[in-house]
Design a protein around this nucleic acid. Structure first.
Lengths: 183, 183
DNA sequence: TATTATTCGGAGTGAAGACTCCGCTTAGAA
DNA sequence: TTCTAAGCGGAGTCTTCACTCCGAATAATA
């Protein structure tokens, strides 16, 4: 791959994250091209379809998220690690709408096994890991499952609102995820 | 207004709630017309713009929500009323994506004071009422504000997922909203 | 530096969808 | 039953995009 090609590919991906992060699926390919400083043709050579571009963007982001989460899992304090990751995923700003877009897409009619799904699974697994460690350490309520935690993260990540309000809402949810009185 | 006109208006609104409930902003006016069993022309006579149609749909729904919530507020048990309303708003199925659409719209460039905003305010006030009663009864944590509660409702209402998972997630959040140990 | 395979750019194409227009239909009054 | 103002339907227009195509530009190699 020629060096200019690779550079352009990267710039397009970065621009795509910006644009789809702001406007979701409604963002146009032309806008992505403009922000990347390339022609539309270039965008479409690297990503044959708008959908492919969005997918690549999402995969890139999810992969990053999963890695960060996994790394944090290594550290000492299980409860703190869980909570920090939770907070981080919720406020990983530009990702928000991209994730919405992901959820909106109608379950990929091209039966092909999906990269996006694979990446999402990795994130989910990382969350699961953090969750169960937190539970073992007695710092997270024992009856919470990944499904619920993952859903809460997604829900909060897509919520619009003042940063401070979101933060306090997260605090409330994390309180709900703390061990029950009976435990 | 002629009787057939009124009937058609109602059918269009109902169809719109269905369509936008399923597909959000992406739902087409043509689809709404088809489901309502009328021509596109009819839709556009009643609602001069797609945006106007969506707004009318949302207003209709929000008004209903606010009324239900207010009615529930009358009842006896403050804590239960708060929690029931919370649950109900989250799972008021077809509303979900319509609300998303509302949030997505770029702050109404037509400076005109907004019906939608007015309706949303009513819902918010109903929630506020329920919240503060719950707090006075000592059944809801004292430091929670409407902002946070309202955001949590919106976030959960838009969350995709199995009904049962959503329900459990709501349980967790409501636990987070229960009085703190220190109170 | 010369060569060429690769990549770039952006005008052009086709499809989708919001919105308009106007001849036809009909509710409802006389 | 007749009349007509109000309402209906849907073909057609216009705009916005996703995506294609190919001549111009250029990285990499000899």
């Amino acid at each position: 791959m020629r060096s200019d090609a690779r550079a352009n590919r990267d710039r397009v991906l970065a621009a795509a994250e910006e644009v789809f992060g702001e406007s979701g699926n409604a963002g146009s390919t032309e806008e992505v091209a403009r922000r990347a400083g390339v022609g539309i043709g270039t965008v479409f050579r690297h990503f044959p379809t708008k959908r492919a571009l969005i997918k690549a963007t999402i995969v890139r982001h999810l992969t990053l998220l999963a890695e960060t989460a996994r790394a944090r899992g290594e550290g000492g304090e299980a409860g703190a690690a869980f909570r920090e990751t939770f907070r981080e995923m919720v406020s990983g700003a530009p990702a928000k709408l991209a994730l919405v877009a992901l959820l909106e897409e109608p379950a990929d009619s091209t039966g092909s096994a999906d990269e996006v799904e694979a990446a999402a699974t990795m994130v989910r697994q990382a969350v699961e890991e953090l969750l169960s460690r937190g539970q073992q350490a007695g710092e997270v309520r024992a009856d919470a499952t990944v499904d619920e935690v993952y859903l809460l993260i997604r829900a909060l990540a897509n919520a619009r609102g003042d940063r401070t309000v979101v933060d306090r809402a997260v605090d409330i949810v994390l309180d709900g995820l703390s061990p029950r009185r009976s435990e």
